[in-house]
């Protein structure tokens, strides 16, 4: 039985993908290393921030954690068992437990399905009971009126769509949620609403969360640990206060300095 406080233990994680941009007309494409040996833990009930610039490998890391991608080397231990190389049948029982919220709510919600069906479909696939109740509960949790079940995604605002994405994930009662840049497409006011909502849900439902973002300013409030990624390696992995108050790596400092504060006299600009 799994007793450790860590939900995920990741050791020596490597991932390489074929580089079709540099492929010759014949033969195999050369491989590029995206993740170059990562070690970290995610504790049960904690929120891990994953930060880095574009191309740093943060989304690839996220997708490997929920096993949408298979690592080239290393292990991903989830609740005591290595899920790094399970096949699709072996992964099936885990799919409900590992959920994901996507960046762009418009392209991740089926435009031809109503909100109710969008949230209910995964529940049906996993043969859960009391589907109607669960959909209503999920909508209550994200602060959307139950009547929204009958709406189509295009009838919602960006912030409301992102709430539907969150509702779809939490309706499954997952153990772990991966949130990949979920507020970067929203304006500041809806951004604040979604972040506050997520913070409450983490507390109320005891969620374990990995929160991917290129913007450190949205990380501070939500996350307990932060992992800073640059070119597929971890440059800093520390509690959130340390990242902001005493960043050890040059790259972290660069990321912090690049955040435009609402202040015309910010130094370094």
């Amino acid at each position: 039985m799994h007793t450790d406080a860590s939900m995920f233990k990741v050791r020596g994680l490597e991932l390489s993908l074929p580089d079709f941009a540099n492929k010759q007309p014949f033969g195999r494409a050369p491989m590029v290393d995206i993740l170059k040996g990562l070690d970290f833990d995610i504790e049960t009930g904690s929120v891990l921030g994953i930060v880095g610039g574009s191309g740093s490998g943060k989304s690839t890391l996220g997708r490997t954690l929920v096993r949408l991608l298979e690592p080239t080397a290393g292990s991903i231990v989830f609740e005591g068992s290595d899920i790094g190389h399970l096949d699709e049948t072996g992964l099936r029982p885990l799919r409900r437990r590992l959920q994901m919220i996507f960046q762009d709510p418009m392209s991740s919600l089926n435009p031809r399905r109503r909100v109710g069906a969008i949230i209910a479909d995964p529940l049906r696939i996993h043969d859960l009971d009391r589907i109607d109740e669960r959909v209503d509960e999920a909508l209550d949790h994200v602060g959307l009126p139950r009547a929204f079940r009958a709406r189509y995604p295009h009838e919602l605002s960006g912030g409301q769509r992102q709430r539907v994405g969150i509702a779809r994930a939490i309706a499954m009662r997952p153990d772990f949620i991966l949130a990949d840049e979920i507020v970067s497409g929203l304006d500041v006011s809806s951004q604040a609403q979604v972040l506050n909502l997520l913070e409450n849900l983490v507390r109320e439902l005891g969620l374990t969360l990995a929160f991917i973002s290129h913007d450190l300013s949205v990380i501070r409030r939500l996350c307990s640990q932060v992992l800073v990624l640059n070119r597929g390696t971890i440059v800093e992995y520390a509690p959130v206060e340390q990242i902001f108050d005493a960043p050890k790596s040059e790259y972290t400092r660069e990321l912090l300095d690049a955040i435009p504060l609402p202040d015309p006299d910010q130094p370094g600009w």
Partner: peptide
């Protein structure tokens, strides 16, 4: 504007903007 926004809506918009230098102020949506 940044020292003293005149309209209530501008004020609200400004306080919804995340400031990582102020850790424990909760973000306030408009």
């Amino acid at each position: 504007f940044y020292a003293n926004p005149a309209h209530a809506y501008s004020k609200a918009l400004l306080s919804a903007t995340p400031k990582f230098t102020e850790p424990f102020t909760s973000l306030t949506p408009v």
